[in-house]
């Protein structure tokens, strides 16, 4: 769920297109909306002094959706941002993870998302590591 929630909408949409074009009928399957994609906010909380009492930091945009596949599997999505299509795909993937398509969905969607994310994180972490200070001490009077 985290991978789907953090993804950029255009990336997820492209992966979903590739996934469904090999599986005719998946996209057209009659899904039942339990909750149509809806955009709202979630209040993000922090803690005083990072460990103390909780306080309200500010909100973030979130889109949610819930649906049921013809096979009966139910999928839910709460994803960052305002993209309804992203929420729809995330809920579909969530539902698929409970059925026979789980392995395919994992390979075709979740794994590539994880790779993209790891690459992006490593790129930033490597740059951060290069800015880590290595102190040296000058010895006087030897």
């Amino acid at each position: 769920m985290g991978l789907l929630a953090r993804s950029r909408p255009e990336t997820l949409a492209a992966l979903w297109r590739d996934f469904t074009c090999n599986r005719a009928g998946l996209e057209e399957a009659a899904i039942t909306w339990l909750r149509k994609p809806e955009t709202g906010t979630v209040m993000v909380r922090g803690r005083a002094g990072a460990v103390g009492e909780a306080f309200n930091l500010g909100e973030m945009t979130v889109t949610r959706a819930s649906l049921r596949l013809p096979c009966g599997a139910v999928g839910h999505a709460y994803v960052q941002g305002r993209d309804r299509e992203k929420a729809r795909i995330a809920a579909l993937v969530d539902a698929l993870m409970a059925g026979p398509h789980a392995d395919h969905a994992r390979k075709a969607i979740l794994a590539p998302l994880a790779t993209i994310e790891t690459e992006a994180r490593t790129a930033r972490a490597s740059r951060a590591a290069a800015t880590q200070v290595d102190f040296f001490t000058m010895v006087r009077g030897e």
């Binding site: 209040m43 803690r47 990072a50 309200n56 930033r124 740059r127 951060a128």
Partner: peptide, 22 residues
């Protein structure tokens, strides 16, 4: 912001686990 419904509140964020860039 005032046009959006509020879905709820998050668990307080864990800044100790932050992926720090600084």
């Amino acid at each position: 912001r005032t046009t959006l419904p509020r879905f709820g509140a998050s668990i307080p964020i864990a800044t100790g686990a932050m992926a720090c860039e600084r």
